[in-house]
Computed example of a mutant assay.
Amino acid sequence: MHIPFSFRRLIRSSLIAGGLALASSALWAHGDVTPQAVDTKTLPQLGAKWLPSNPYNTGPAFKEALRIGTSAYNQNCARCHGLEAISGGIAPDLRKMDTDCTGMADEAKKNACFAEMDEYYVATVRRGRTRDGRVYMPPFEATLSQEAIWAIRTYLETRREK
């Protein structure tokens, strides 16, 4: 049976379009990749000056920060860093971010290490990470407030590997 050239092109175009639609739906399977704003009005507001360490990891705001941070992580971070901060290999496993600190016996050195990791975390989330012109992590400063970023850190601290 002879299939006219124009019909073959139509079939090929349809297959390509179908493949693209399938690929597109697979990409959306992880959700919208647009950064999502986070409602933090129930947390103590921190002001414009960035704090050097997480103000929510202890004290009365901890539970609310954990609730907000869990949701904010799932909305903005899980698509790359994995559900429950368990990486599937696309991006770093955030449960291991503080591994070097947790094993330190000297309390002063451990606290200094955690402070350094807080600084690295905030800088990375605010400004993103780019290497050789490739974006490895987008900047979130325009979308996430200081309260939201520290709430996510609160969640991540509960996910640390023991």
Score class of each variant (00 low, 15 high):
T143R: 02
E116G: 15
R126G: 01
T70G: 12
Y73G: 01
R95V: 00
A142K: 14
K49R: 12
G89Y: 04
L156H: 06
I68C: 02
L66T: 00
S145N: 10
E107L: 14
P55R: 06
A142W: 02
H30C: 13
Y121W: 13
L46P: 02
A26Y: 15
D98V: 03
F62G: 00
N57L: 11
R153I: 01
L22Y: 15
A29W: 15
S87R: 04
D106Q: 09
E84T: 10
P35N: 13
P139Y: 01
V38P: 02
P35Y: 12
E147Q: 13
R134M: 10
Y120T: 12
D93Y: 10
G18M: 14
L46Y: 05
A91V: 01
S87V: 06
P52M: 06
T158G: 03
A85D: 08
P92F: 06
R160G: 00
I90K: 11
R134H: 11
R127D: 14
A91S: 13
V125T: 12
A78E: 06
A23S: 15
Y155M: 04
A108Y: 05
D132C: 00
Y56N: 03
G18R: 11
P44A: 08
T102W: 01
R95F: 03
Q146V: 04
R95A: 01
F114P: 00
L66S: 03
D39L: 09
M137W: 06
T102Y: 01
W50M: 11
H30G: 15
T158L: 05
F140P: 00
E116C: 00
K109D: 11
L66I: 00
P52Q: 10
A91Q: 02
L20F: 15
M104K: 13
T158S: 14
A151K: 04
L27F: 15
Y121C: 05
V38K: 05
N54V: 03
W28L: 15
R159A: 10
G89P: 03
G59M: 04
L43I: 09
A148H: 05
A123T: 14
D106E: 13
D132L: 11
V125P: 08
Q45T: 06
N74K: 10
K41W: 09
C113Q: 00
G89W: 04
M97G: 07
N111P: 00
E119V: 03
R127G: 12
E116W: 04
P44N: 05
Y73A: 01
S71A: 12
D93H: 11
A108R: 12
E157H: 08
A85M: 09
Y56T: 05
A105V: 11
A72M: 07
R134I: 09
A108D: 12
Y56R: 04
Q36I: 12
L156I: 14
G18D: 12
G128R: 07
A72R: 06
E107Q: 14
S71V: 10
C77T: 03
